[in-house]
Write a protein that binds this DNA or RNA. Sequence first.
DNA 1: TCGTATT
Length: 415
Amino acid sequence: MKEPDAIKLFVGQIPRHLEEKDLKPIFEQFGRIFELTVIKDKYTGLHKGCAFLTYCARDSALKAQSALHEQKTLPGMNRPIQVKPADSESRGEDRKLFVGMLGKQQTDEDVRKMFEPFGTIDECTVLRGPDGTSKGCAFVKFQTHAEAQAAINTLHSSRTLPGASSSLVVKFADTEKERGLRRMQQVATQLGMFSPIALQFGAYSAYTQALMQQQAALVAAHSAYLSPMATMAAVQMQHMAAINANGLIATPITPSSAQSPAAPVDPLQQAYAGMQHYTAAYPAAYSLVAPAFPQPPALVAQQPPPPPQQQQQQQQQQQQQREGESPDGCNIFIYHLPQEFTDSEILQMFVPFGHVISAKVFVDRATNQSKCFGFVSFDNPASAQAAIQAMNGFQIGMKRLKVQLKRPKDANRPY
DNA sequence: TCGTATT
């Protein structure tokens, strides 16, 4: 049925409304398909915009890859289709090199030329910062481990490139696990400074304590009809209020007397708006704050089951989601996020405003670095508006968040 | 500065 050396392909940039039966005709022209599966969220069944494809014949896969990968764009997509061996096919890590101490001006092509003599290169990417300047390092993936090893043997420490401070580094790239560990350490170091909750609760004066507790109670009350995630946020607030009672210090940088508007204001907004005037003043909050943070990235599925009277409504919501993205007006765009923020942190930041369908920081594909913007989708426009009202202009460090409605998909289409 | 996703 399938050749033993068949290749499982990953197919990306598929419109989310296309199912297996719609995709089949596109791929069948390259050969008989053994298996084609649209990738869906394990819990919600949401179409993830990609698929796995295995042809009976290895040759069909190679043909499809060269004919389609980056070659054409499916209707409604703004990037070309991806057709390449699935991650599971390669294990990649034992043939992927990290190259350090490059000169800043060297391009992908320059690096490729340097490594070409050692074998066939699958990928070659110089890492670049948000402004496009080289970070002086690159990833080079060979087809085999032996080729990669040969490149290390010959090139590592072999020379010092112009503009580099020491000799060329050529080593196997970190594995997924090593990378995860490294990231965790970074997060742990910076949590107290940058996490929105820590930012606001990590340290504050006795002056705000009563306010905190009151707001926590208000949020808790709201959360009864908002979402379990909001409840979690409220619990965190109460947790932090308790920590405060244990004698932490804070530095108000702006008088918060402005927080007594004549008209009644949504307490959720107050909870955030009233707190943005405080900044963490001491580093020791990390150990207290950090345990509150690890949170499951999945939103809908991992929440505890709602009380019976909410279940029907919840099911309706999930069915709506399956049909597609949140409707226009429910999705917000956030810019000027701190570099360190991940999906989890923006989720934390916006969950007090309603039921979050998704929270996504845009990450550079090549570097895994945040591009400092992201999206949060709510299940209703009012939540999105509340989030914008409360969080647009919210100061984090030296920057202010820009929070606005995500442009509708057809925004730049002429008429 | 507007959704890159890996059973």
